[in-house]
Amino acid sequence: MGTEPGTNGGGASRQPPPRDERSDPRSARPGSFPGAFPIGPAISFLRRFRKGLDSGSDLPVALGEAGSALPRELRDALDRLLKRLAGDYVEDEWGFDEEFADALLPFLEFLYDRWWRVETIGARNVPSHGRAMLVANHAGVLPWDATMISVGLLREHPLPRYARFLVLDWAFQLPYVSVAMRKVGGVVASPYNALRLLEQDELVAVFPEGAKGAGKPFKERYRLERFGRGGFVEIALRTGAPIVPVAVVGSEEIYPKVGEAPALARLIGAPYFPLTPTFPLLGPLGFVPLPSKWRIEFGEPIETARFGPEAAEDRSFVFELSEQVREAIQNKVYENLVERGSAFL
């Protein structure tokens, strides 16, 4: 997945080029300010377009030829856009669209660097190739924690790769949300999907707490819910994928959930309908997450291959291992809570 061994080991190789130019004010040319309308090129574009039409070219051809008057970056961006409009982009069999995911990165990196000031620890514990399962605690109503785990890996891992997330089925009934989810690597949370992805040697991220975790009230923050029926352990055992426990701290404060409206949840078919100090009171503003301070720690991987796939049949062993993973994550969560100190500063 676009990994380049041997590039500068800092993980910065992953950053898309446009970001560097835009975020660095020094790169702006003297005499121009960002967002200035390029009058010169626009005029010569129109002139060439007119000339093309006069000489009898068709509209798209004339437009295209006039395009050569535009600056290089604009032409590249235009070409990328046209490529996508012609259907010339790659989606894998799951509908994952790496170009689309890359395009979202600048926004997510802003949240990562500025908004939540995320500190990522132990990214090297994630295997750089082959199958593996990330198991994380889940909080914060909307799955921002999943995006930050992803960005953390892309930024801090020497051989970055995109993780595939198991997403609550409800998201796939929704317009736009369903499309965005699958394009950034989300799949329906089904054991069949997890098995298939791991057999394809992908990195799969799961939140065994599920909707219970994301929707827990603010006063129960950082206390991990029950890990379902341990299905994720069964899948890891069956495919021999190592389990990497991931502790996320900071996600609980982004939307402090103080209440619930079950009637509204039933009405829209959602697993829960949260009430926070800002939602739904402030309308769409309520979607803006609070700028808490985050820490993400990737723990030591737990090898499962040595138990063999038969171990997946052993209920008590599965529960035991599931509990062991839960405890590992819970301990890391507490440690990082202490490390972080104040929630917002």
Binding site: P60, G64, E65, G67, S68, R75, D79, L82, A86
Partner: peptide
């Protein structure tokens, strides 16, 4: 005729 590819070729040239 598919407009987008024609346009693209023209941009590239």
């Amino acid at each position: 005729r598919r407009l987008v590819p024609v346009f693209r070729e023209a941009v590239a040239s």
